[in-house]
Write a protein that binds this DNA or RNA. Sequence first.
DNA 1: CGGTTGGTTCCCGTGACTGGAAGCCCTATA
DNA 2: TATAGGGCTTCCAGTCACGGGAACCAACCG
Lengths: 136, 136
Amino acid sequence: MNIGSASERSGLPAKTIRYYEEIGLLTAGRSNNGYRDYSASDVSRLRFLKRSRSLGFSVEECRQLLSLYNDTDRQSADVKALAMVKLADLDDKLKELMELRNTLQHLVHSCNGDSRSECSIIDGLADETLHAGVKN
Amino acid sequence: MNIGSASERSGLPAKTIRYYEEIGLLTAGRSNNGYRDYSASDVSRLRFLKRSRSLGFSVEECRQLLSLYNDTDRQSADVKALAMVKLADLDDKLKELMELRNTLQHLVHSCNGDSRSECSIIDGLADETLHAGVKN
DNA sequence: CGGTTGGTTCCCGTGACTGGAAGCCCTATA
DNA sequence: TATAGGGCTTCCAGTCACGGGAACCAACCG
């Protein structure tokens, strides 16, 4: 099938599929007219990539996952190890974002939000000691 | 003071400070020798920028915040409105990341992680119906 | 006077695409 | 059969927020 159908069936934009080929993630065959030609299993792999990307794996991590996907002799422990690292990354990122959110919420709550110029958000952004203060 | 001192006192790399000047965020004066020359209030603004960036504001949002910072006649409601939008963005992002994390954790838990090739993580990544299933 | 450090500008690279231009290929319709 | 359209191709540029590094000038130290 042409790239348009593969795009539709995988949910990935054609541009992205060509990009993945360019970086050697997934190379399709070519028809006589020069068009890219995708098989059903290519579409499966594209879907695999889409889902892995949407779960926060980087393209390089997807490259590893895809090779594990393609290798039917792999050990599930290898996959699990990769996923657990990613899970820990996500937890770190979540923690960081939560702290950030709490600091910002603290700033928002402390601001009157009226027509006066005094603004504790601005003051808080200017004063880095507030950051540590919020953490406690 | 030179850019090195401004960098040290603000905590921003010199590269970043030059970049901010290039995009018109904060323009410093120049000494006779052509070096950039920073005042104490420039350093305050740089610190303000650093903190705003670290709280998840984009450079364009920082541009707005900085103009509010510079404008002593502003109304605190304007600042609060901007901060609240950002807070809502952060909440959205957190929610999305949490779902993502839970899906991944589910996949990790369901995998035996042994030497066999059967791997429910790989299966889960290949099968998008699992995603909806995890949400419920 | 030479060496080191710290400024300057400029350009390239990052990650993961997205948009757009120029041109080929295929099909449907007048 | 001519042509209009849509889909496909490649290539180039832009995104965001810088970071690395080259080539060159300025300041300072011994």
